[in-house]
Nucleic acid binder design. Sequence first.
DNA 1: GTGAAAGCGCTAACAA
DNA 2: TTGTTAGCGCTTTCAC
Lengths: 352, 352
Amino acid sequence: MDEEADAASRRPATIGDVARLAGVATSTVSRALTVPGRVSEATRKRVVAAAAELSYVPSSHARSLVSGTTRTVALLVPDIANPFYFGLIRGAQRQLRAAGYAQLLVDTEESAEIEADTVDLMRKSADGVILAASRLDERQLATLAQRQPIVTVNRDVPGVPSVILDTPDGARQALLHLRSLGHRRIVYVGGPADSWSSARRWQALQATAAALDVDLQQSGPWMPHAEAGATAADAVVGTATACIVFNDVLAFGMLRRLRERGVRVPEDLSIVGCDDVFGADFCDPPLTTIAAPIEEAGRVAVTMLLDTIAGTGSGRTRAILPTYLRARRSSGPAADGHPAPVSRTAPSGRGS
Amino acid sequence: MDEEADAASRRPATIGDVARLAGVATSTVSRALTVPGRVSEATRKRVVAAAAELSYVPSSHARSLVSGTTRTVALLVPDIANPFYFGLIRGAQRQLRAAGYAQLLVDTEESAEIEADTVDLMRKSADGVILAASRLDERQLATLAQRQPIVTVNRDVPGVPSVILDTPDGARQALLHLRSLGHRRIVYVGGPADSWSSARRWQALQATAAALDVDLQQSGPWMPHAEAGATAADAVVGTATACIVFNDVLAFGMLRRLRERGVRVPEDLSIVGCDDVFGADFCDPPLTTIAAPIEEAGRVAVTMLLDTIAGTGSGRTRAILPTYLRARRSSGPAADGHPAPVSRTAPSGRGS
DNA sequence: GTGAAAGCGCTAACAA
DNA sequence: TTGTTAGCGCTTTCAC
């Protein structure tokens, strides 16, 4: 049994093994493999050949130890199974791969505690953290952001770089859309109590409703799961002719319940969701929804984070991504409604 | 400006900082924080207090360097945006968290090359790798598995521990189901050319069809995306009265196309999908599908991998998880068909 | 252009 | 029970 040849395939080769095989010092191997022109072409070739033969892969941990950097970014999402986050995850991963970074994905299970603990843990294991729909309060977020590079998605806290999907504007568009279809009694089916996005949307809706002669109510809070949709649907039926729902997943649950109860969509109740997630175009009926460029949000978040890490912070600390209403079959004319003239600019001010 | 107090919040505290503050040696800190009874209660308290004050988090990298272990497991999936993998990811993450492991999630973008490269990279950054629906060939897989702990999901290669969802059996159930509804011309809408699962299902179907007096054809290969469903649908229409589709996502795309073309489901064409993913129960019409315990698969894969890593390999190297047919509206009686008596045991042998 | 040596933060002998 | 020391694999001075 040839010990030499065998050792390589058993125990991962170290820089020392490569050095020995190439007949050089470890420092030379390091240079040959990382710094371009710091070593003679001849040695470089020998080293590269040796590394290949031993299928040498540098230990990222050893590297991190000395460099203090990990080439890893953590992405924290409240619920991996929520299709809203797919695009985010994928957009982030693409951008990270391109930059030579690894992605540490963590499902915080919608718990502020798990989230805080994880962020703390990541202080050592990741160069930075992306927080999607954070459940933490402003103070915590601000404090954490001082300790380590953080970018939030859909959460705006002073001093913390963030990527915001402009769903309040989308909600405004939805309200105008429904009003133009003749709806005057509209319910906002809200998300979790601690959801910053949901609160902002509700504010935007209220401001717009006042000027539109719309009777707007809020229902909830509801967890953003399909299961919660059943109860949410029951709460809405009879109280309004249309509703704007916190997100598509919740709306899916409502759709199912309404079908069970024989409530027709959109004839008896119009529904507008949010996010345009996987499934919104083939559910029954297809869901009118506020579409957001979520994959782009992932890319932008990574770019901002990497800037922060590199200290290249060009100052851009807040990206707002536009959303738009994608009308499908789940919204239609109100049975007894009088349409209103519509302009894309909400009466309450603020254009697109 | 108080340098002492400040230093802690600026630069993450090391074990040395804690030792100094507690007035002990670093090794004592290490012991106090990791080995339960190896230190006096009094010192332990002092150390813990000091650590808390400095909000000390051990460097996982330094730890890895000395222990040779990373407490990290990599999960490679071909396409993060495919809802099939949600359950897997979540099941894996739950089990990993419970064991104190971190999860490194990588989207290999359905590329064998990215997959192979990543597995190689992970040799140093993860203690083991879970490969979902691997695109690698048997030889590569076997070689890699010799170098590092690997568990595959839905891929069986001798010498590589694996978790298999018994979808061939599910496909058999689907065929019986369709036959009992009177269908005799059935198409299997196949997955990617290099998909091991798809090949196995096709084999199982052929074996069963022979004994059932069913005219079974294969269509494809198709990429498992909704977009491919349009072409797949066009290829099937008119050639059969029912089809069994590689997975739900592809079936969703078919459903949409069929609606556009005015082909009624199930009256003109019955459809059976596979995986029972998010959306299968609220698409239009709801999809009859082969349901698989995918979240459990994630958990089991982690357990097997952790066993392999620990060397506790109790010998169980292959877990087969049963699947079952979940009938919904997308499958119905054949317009011109003659039902067949049904037994849950396929004529070709092999029970449940 | 290359080698020797120190040290990143931690754990695991080995002493005391 | 605790401290001292060596060393994990790598990069980075500092010499030569």
